[in-house]
């Protein structure tokens, strides 16, 4: 069960990390083309991400929130995989 959790958490972390990071990059390119000055998302004291564009090109910062999204995604995926594994074991026991 621990191995299932670790493997699934790793897959979830990588998947959500890549999705969140790449979507911020996409937003940076789109805001550059649309000449949007400043785009960002902040939850209380935590900066999820911020993208801003100046005359010379695009500059963007990626907030610590991206890492949080990845970590949360990993934990949720790990827990989900463990729940699925338990359900499977329970149904196998019931079948016997």
């Amino acid at each position: 069960m621990t191995r299932t959790f670790i493997k699934s958490a790793l897959i979830g972390t990588v998947s959500f990390g890549v999705i969140a990071y790449c979507l911020v990059l996409v937003l940076a390119v789109l805001s550059q083309s649309g000449r949007v000055a400043d785009v960002g998302l902040r939850l209380g004291p935590l900066e999820i991400f911020q993208v801003w564009v100046d005359e010379s090109g695009h500059h963007f910062t990626i907030g610590t929130g991206i890492a949080l999204v990845a970590a949360l995604g990993g934990v949720v995926n790990g827990i989900g995989a463990v729940i699925l594994a338990r359900q499977r074991i329970r149904s196998m026991r019931a079948a016997h």
Partner: peptide, 15 residues
């Protein structure tokens, strides 16, 4: 790849 989709649930079961 995550448990939010059918493929992800099958993957989690196969791990």
């Amino acid at each position: 790849l995550t448990v939010f989709s059918k493929d992800g649930r099958s993957l989690a079961r196969a791990l």
